[in-house]
């Protein structure tokens, strides 16, 4: 059943997994530090009983979230596909919630590349594609590929259609 829609074929950079894992870990570590501080305050000032339970619940959620984030990064990479031709930009993503998007070139308003500190570490770029009502992001592409794709989209999207 999966193959009825002709899937796009191009993949993200393999380093995207590392980028995601690192960024998720950073966020999670911050979260755990915050939780630790809260636990300390809780025991020190002996807060209400429910506050402790809430913190325990949050901890369980965070731990499972952290474990999940590693799988998520791998799954995201495995299932992300994009493709571009003269008429359409095609995006496919998601393992559990699978999305296929089809965007006509003529409806694209602008395209840009972005790079944060983590992406810079691996010399990756993300591409943002603005359409009239939404923004589509291709998260992590190697520099050369990203620039080429950006220019390609820009060229294709130039075609006017009213």
């Amino acid at each position: 059943m999966q193959t009825i829609i002709s899937s796009p074929t191009k993949q993200l950079s393999k380093d995207s997994v590392k980028v995601w894992v690192i960024s998720e870990t950073l966020i999670n570590v911050t979260g755990f530090i915050l939780l630790g501080v809260l636990f300390f305050l809780d025991s020190h000032y002996s807060w209400y009983g429910w506050a402790t339970w809430l913190l325990i619940a949050l901890t369980i959620l965070s731990v499972s979230g952290t474990v999940w984030s590693f799988f998520k990064a791998v799954l995201l990479y495995k299932h992300w596909r994009y493709d571009v031709n003269e008429e359409f930009l095609q995006l496919k993503s998601g393992a559990l919630h699978e999305e296929h998007q089809l965007i006509p070139m003529t409806k694209i308003q602008s395209v840009s590349t972005h790079q944060g500190p983590l992406l810079r570490k691996y010399q990756l770029y993300s591409i943002k594609i603005h359409t009239m009502g939404s923004i589509h992001v291709i998260p992590a592409l190697p520099e050369a590929v990203a620039f080429e794709l950006r220019n390609q989209i820009a060229t294709y999207a130039k075609v006017e259609e009213e």
Partner: peptide
């Protein structure tokens, strides 16, 4: 303007899918 087909876990098991399309409005209508 654009279209999307998506499937969540249950939909995949049951052979179902969701379709979404976008029209211009103010600014757009899904």
């Amino acid at each position: 303007l654009e279209v999307m087909v998506s499937r969540n876990l249950f939909q995949k098991k049951l052979g179902l899918a969701s379709v979404n399309m976008v029209n211009r409005e103010n600014p757009v209508r899904h």
